[in-house]
């Protein structure tokens, strides 16, 4: 474990995975708030044929080329989802299912073609399915880390615009912002985040890198700025955990470990998040109950005193010999006794 700090190669891999997780978390926040979480899943699966075609056309394994191929495939996938939902009565969820599985199937067909034919340097292409951070070369790391950093910076620069897009696009349009363009831009950035995340987490699970940190961060805050930072932090943590653990145990792919780390963050948030978390809810419910009991006890005590005073007054009246008042006095005394009991039980 300690060799992580001394081995410069591992240190780079750790840093790269953290950057990838960070960018995933930051972008994921916006797509979560726009209720488009699963678009990341579709984009990730759709990237596979793009990567395969880029490899088949050029015959070299270069992250830059794969990035271009995956971006084009992702754009084709989003376009197909839009077309299917706009021009037929298929609902968005089914359209996403169709596009996701169809693109992935094309990718699998191409991948098996590549494996069966005589492309020399194909080993490692299947690492894209589950991610293997340790297989990244240092030049890959520079490319991916640079892209991830650019993503985060872009989100920082366009923070205000994206905030408008998430919460009130109509108002944004009224203010003169090009909302359609911004929407496309955010989608494009999401595609980039997914594509660079694939290297670390793999095609199948990269969606988790976008969704899980954002959902976890939502448990802790109501403010977009805090949520973005927290989601980035959770993403970076899970990326680091994945790279670290999978570099120590040889059979383990990086992706699932990162996802499990992110899930652990999520479970912790569900349990311990302030206000929304399970513990906070239970505590809140208990303290509310205690408050209510205390209040009702206070009311009861006050009612007690009043009832007692009334009773003495009526007793005084009774001693005057007007027996008919007794019937009126009785229920009061009765309820005072009840209130007493309740107060005692607290």
């Amino acid at each position: 474990m300690l060799n992580l700090l001394t081995d410069p190669n591992l240190r780079w891999i750790l840093l790269g995975s953290m950057l990838l997780g960070l960018s995933g978390g930051v972008i994921g926040t916006f797509s979560y708030l726009r209720k488009q979480s699963l678009i990341g899943d579709t984009l990730a699966h759709a990237a596979l044929p793009g990567i395969c075609i880029a490899f088949m056309l050029t015959g070299v394994k270069s992250v830059g080329l794969f990035l271009v191929g995956a971006l084009l495939a992702g754009a084709a996938a989003t376009l197909s989802v839009t077309l299917i939902t706009r021009y037929s009565r298929i609902k968005p969820d089914a359209a996403m299912g169709i596009v996701l599985s169809l693109f992935f199937a094309v990718g699998i067909v191409l991948l098996t073609r590549i494996q069966h034919s005589s492309y020399g340097n194909q080993s490692g292409l299947d690492k894209f399915l589950f991610g293997q951070a340790a297989s990244m070369t240092s030049s890959d790391l520079y490319t991916l880390g640079g892209v991830a950093l650019l993503l985060v910076i872009a989100c920082g620069l366009l923070y205000k615009e994206f905030k408008l897009l998430c919460f009130d696009p109509g108002y944004g349009r009224g203010l003169g912002f090009p909302m359609g363009l911004l929407e496309q831009l955010l989608l494009g950035l999401t595609t980039v985040a997914v594509v660079v995340g694939i290297q670390a987490v793999g095609v199948v699970l990269v969606a988790a890198l976008l969704i899980t940190p954002a959902v976890s961060a939502r448990y802790w805050t109501d403010r977009l700025g805090v949520m973005t930072v927290l989601a980035g932090l959770f993403g970076a943590l899970s990326g680091a955990a994945g790279a670290w653990i999978s570099s120590g145990v040889s059979q383990l792919p990086t992706g699932p470990i990162s996802v499990l780390a992110a899930t652990a963050c999520f479970v912790a948030s569900v349990l311990f998040g302030p206000r929304r978390g399970l513990a906070a809810k239970l505590l809140g419910r208990r303290s509310a109950r205690r408050r209510w009991l205390a209040e009702s006890a206070g009311v009861a005590a006050r009612a007690n005193i009043q009832a007692a005073m009334q009773a003495t007054a009526q007793a005084a009246v009774l001693t005057d010999g007007q027996a008919n008042v007794h019937d009126n006095a009785h229920p009061n005394v009765h309820s005072a006794a009840h209130a007493n009991e309740r107060g005692a039980s607290v």
Partner: peptide
């Protein structure tokens, strides 16, 4: 509990799938 529906789908299936992949790779 207040999580958006597609996000909760995403969280649950990726987590379970990851558990499965880890189980398989550890007991290859």
């Amino acid at each position: 509990g207040g999580v958006q529906s597609d996000a909760s789908i995403g969280v649950v299936f990726t987590a379970l799938f990851a558990v499965g992949v880890v189980l398989i790779s550890l007991n290859a």
